[in-house]
């Protein structure tokens, strides 16, 4: 069963950089999907489910037009309790982070600008959480 890592951010440049960084490190072991909005992310989640691809990690920005990152991660957590949730954002209010931590079992909060090391070690710690 294939596994995927999903990144959500309203900035395409951020998304492509993330996909490349993660892809460079983990290669062909996972699928890497990117979405510019929460709405698009759900489309992808649906597609992947149909293809029986399991999303193991969701990395989401917080401040986006439309649905915010905390709401999205909470919804993902409710649907896929095993999925590791990571928030990567330049600005989020503490309330939102706290709520996500409680309600979506937030694995980590990474502040922009992020370092490759921080990002990758966080993902790897997520793998460990999943016993991968």
């Amino acid at each position: 069963m294939k596994q995927a890592i999903l990144c959500v951010d309203d900035e395409p440049t951020v998304l492509r950089s993330l996909r490349e960084q993660i892809g460079n490190r983990f290669g062909d072991r996972y699928l890497y999907e990117i979405a510019e909005s929460v709405e698009e992310a759900w489309e992808i989640i649906e597609e992947l489910s149909e293809e029986e691809v399991k999303i193991i990690i969701v990395i989401s920005d917080w401040l986006m037009p439309g649905v915010k990152g905390d709401e999205f991660l909470i919804a993902v957590h409710q649907q896929f309790p095993d999925t590791v949730t990571i928030m990567l954002t330049g600005q989020a209010d503490l309330e939102a982070i706290e709520r996500t931590r409680v309600e979506a079992d937030l694995h980590a909060y990474i502040a922009k600008p992020w370092t490759e090391e921080m990002l990758l070690s966080t993902i790897e710690s997520g793998f460990k959480k999943l016993n991968i």
Binding site: E11, V14, S17, E20, G90, P113, T115, L119
Partner: peptide, 8 residues
């Protein structure tokens, strides 16, 4: 955001 992008 752009700083993060540049860095990565």
């Amino acid at each position: 955001t752009p700083l993060g992008v540049i860095q990565s």
